[in-house]
Amino acid sequence: MQIKQAVKLSNQLSGVSESAQLDVELMLCHLLDKPGSYLFTWPEKELDPKIVEQLAVMIDRRLKGEPVAHIIGMRGFWDFDLEVSPHTLIPRPDTEVVVEKALQLCTKKHARITDLGTGTGAIALALAYENPEWTVVASDFVPEAVQLAERNRARLQLGNVEVIQGSWLEPHHGHYDMIVSNPPYIDPEDPHLAQGDVRFEPLSALTAEDHGMADIKHICEQARSYLVPGGHLLFEHGYDQGPVCRALLDSLGYTEIGTQRDYGDNERVTFALWPGSTCA
């Protein structure tokens, strides 16, 4: 079978995926260990029968709804690829907005940053990648997530990142110039949890009580004791949670509160400055 014929197998996925051809191209690139340009440069190249067999197995898994990222074990984020697993969320493009806003807000050359609930390490690693002189601490409650983030850190050779285990700010010491997070923010009753890729992701990383606000409230309250005066807090949230997040931060004494929209023009990342010293 030629590469161009293999790509056409995406027709099998047309009823399952809105990006069927891209899904198959990603699988092929993974199996061939080649970039996407290879498929278009050599469309008539004959594939090894073993590759065709492996592709068929992958397509079958995708037909059952399994995310491509889990099938190939990797997902692109920022300027690199990250290993993923069913123990963590799959990094999504909109989360890059967290990274972009963090880079805008913190202009210190030698900043101390933490990423709470780091999962694959996506946010922490992107910030450390862009600022080699920053010290970044990535934490997660799930042991498997900590191990995964550490593997990604080691593979990217980012020596300015430390990965630790613990619930939110509980394992942290000292103060930070910035606290970032992509916490669980979906209401447990949200019907979208039964649709698409999220069916294969851990509910603990997706849902929170109090209509999705429980973990956000906890982080906002506790962060006051861990931010330096003039330090920033920013976090990802649901498309309709911007107003309640801004009101929450205002009630807790934060200032310079705002919300950044994602690539779909939805309110996605809310940020604020902590003006005080430490909170009792």
Rank of each mutant, 00 (worst) to 15 (best):
C29R: 10
E267W: 08
T114W: 11
G174H: 10
S167E: 10
Y254A: 01
A247T: 11
D33F: 07
K217H: 15
T207D: 00
I179W: 09
P275C: 07
E201Q: 12
T259Q: 06
T114V: 14
A111I: 07
D190P: 02
V24K: 02
V244P: 05
T135F: 05
A223V: 03
N11T: 14
L22V: 09
I123G: 08
A223N: 03
P93G: 09
K101H: 04
A69I: 07
A154V: 12
E100N: 04
R261D: 10
I164W: 07
A128C: 08
G230M: 05
Q5I: 04
V99Q: 00
H70T: 06
A122C: 03
E44V: 10
L233H: 03
Q2Y: 07
T107S: 10
E162S: 14
H192T: 13
G36E: 07
A20L: 07
A145P: 01
L206A: 03
L32W: 05
T259L: 06
P243A: 08
G253A: 09
V161R: 06
V57Q: 10
Y254I: 14
S251Y: 06
P143I: 10
H173A: 14
R62T: 08
H192E: 11
S10F: 13
I90T: 07
A272N: 05
S225Q: 15
E209T: 12
N182Y: 06
E53A: 11
D115M: 01
V180L: 01
T118P: 02
G174A: 07
T207K: 03
L13V: 08
L127V: 12
P202Q: 04
D48I: 14
T114D: 00
Q195T: 13
Y176R: 09
T88M: 03
D48C: 14
L26W: 09
L9R: 14
N160R: 01
G73F: 12
Q165V: 07
L127K: 04
G166V: 15
V180M: 00
Q21L: 03
A111L: 02
I179T: 09
V163E: 04
A145T: 12
Y38L: 02
Q165P: 00
L233N: 01
T120F: 03
A20Y: 08
